[in-house]
Design a protein around this nucleic acid. Sequence first.
DNA 1: GCGACAG
DNA 2: ATCTTGTCGC
Length: 199
Amino acid sequence: MIVTSAPGLRTDTVAGLDVGYRGDDEVVGVCVVFDAKTLDVLDEVVVEDTTNFPYIPGLFAFREMPVLLRALDRVTVTPDLLVADGQGLAHPRRFGLACHLGVHTGIPSIGVAKNAMGTFTQPGERRGSMSDLIMDDEVVGRALRTQDGVKPVFVSVGHKIDLDRACAEVLRLAPRYRLPETTRRADTLTKRAASSGRS
DNA sequence: GCGACAG
DNA sequence: ATCTTGTCGC
């Protein structure tokens, strides 16, 4: 299954992964690798592909995994941590996109979602405040406030890392905006490709 | 059966 | 996710 601990994990390089859409079957996958300390972009890859799998909450990975793996394959710097745009353990079957990516690649991974699938109590208003994300009376992740007064993001473990470390990484990756730089950069690249290459 | 439901 | 202008706020 999934490993939820990370003794001595080093995260010098972190990758942001995201998928953009240009229709029901045209997808754009992006993988951006950052220097975790300076937040400098070390490498970024954009790949186009097609899908026939529809968007079904809970089966998200079947739609986005293929393109993301292709993008990850072409990156020249193997990241120490993968940050997926979606859930990890915070999933109905406890196996969201971040888990698929981690288990498939063997690289530690976490999921950072803009919306929650479980329930949670509002964390404090200050950056760094957090509260448990609950599903079926089980703690599956955390609602984390990355900036004062903004809506929290939902962090959950993907593979080979623990929740505390996952939240710490997200805070480090989001020094200024609500979303971590990894997902922000991956998202803009995704949209750039979508508008410059559409029919 | 009905509603909810990451991107 | 995507379709979309101007607008409010730091």
